[in-house]
């Protein structure tokens, strides 16, 4: 079993009010290595909280997350950053590239923080750059790039550590439809090469590129769809139908 989520609960108590919000209630699912899973839900459904817990950025109130037999919800704060660096890759909605670093240095950042040797960094980038079509961008500064280019650089930064799992939080939300398509095709391509990806999104088009879609509502996973060999368009139609009938439309 690659990733196992058991009875995950999370409740928030905001600092300024006494009310408790139940963000996740009894979430269970299993993911196999090499899957491309999309988690879909409206805003406030708990999908971002779920991603944050998988990313070890938040601790669950109860329940556990097991990645390759290791309970990640019990890792100590001191070791968490290291764990994230070695096992997880992140793609954010708004890219989060550092403007003060060149594109190349942005991609190297996690390796630099992990104290890799320069030769190793260069070797990995050389293998990775053509796949993501960013060879010409390496010497530029982030502000010179378009949104789509920025997100490809961010994907490179996520992939360069050879993570077990890529976590993507609404990666297409800040992109236009052409760049969105490009990015999703890229995700499909790296997934085909064996990379496990977990993506949170509220766009059915984005989700239609995944191999499996989990639907989350009011903090619970209540439905899932497998692609099962369908084309993107067919799968998209299925997802839309599911949303309309199950969520009551969006």
């Amino acid at each position: 079993m690659f990733l196992e989520v058991n009875h995950l609960e999370k409740s928030f108590q905001t600092r300024f009010s006494k009310e408790k919000t139940q963000a996740l209630r009894d979430v269970n699912f299993i993911a196999e290595e090499g899957e491309f899973i999309a988690i879909m839900g409206e805003s406030g459904s708990g999908k971002t909280t779920l991603l944050n817990i998988l990313a070890t950025l938040e601790k669950p109130s109860s329940g556990e997350v097991v990645l390759e037999g290791k309970k990640i919800s019990t890792i100590k704060e001191q070791q968490l950053a290291e764990f994230r660096r070695d096992h997880l890759g992140f793609v954010f909605q708004d890219f989060n590239l550092l403007d003060t670093l060149s594109v190349r240095d942005n991609i190297f950042l996690p390796l630099v923080l992990g104290r890799y040797k320069y030769g190793e960094m260069a070797k990995r980038l050389k293998a990775l750059a053509p796949k993501l079509n960013i060879e010409d961008l390496l010497n530029k500064q982030p502000f010179e790039l378009s949104g789509g280019q920025k997100q490809r650089v961010a994907v490179a930064r996520a992939l360069i550590t050879n993570p077990k799992l890529i976590l993507a939080d609404e990666p297409t939300a800040a992109l236009d439809s052409k760049n969105s398509d490009g990015l999703l095709e890229l995700f499909e391509q790296i997934n085909n090469e064996g990379q496990t990806i977990l993506m949170v999104t509220h766009s059915s088009l984005a989700a239609s590129h995944a191999s499996r879609v989990l639907f989350i509502k009011d903090g619970q996973i209540f439905h899932q769809l497998y692609r099962a060999g369908k084309s993107n368009n067919e799968f998209n139609r299925d997802i839309t139908t599911a949303i309309t009938s199950l969520l009551g439309g969006e």
Partner: peptide, 16 residues
């Protein structure tokens, strides 16, 4: 704060 956050996610703990 954004830069520090990124460091934290990409592999430095708060003490670092």
């Amino acid at each position: 704060t954004r830069e520090f956050g990124l460091y934290n996610i990409l592999g430095l703990n708060k003490r670092n």
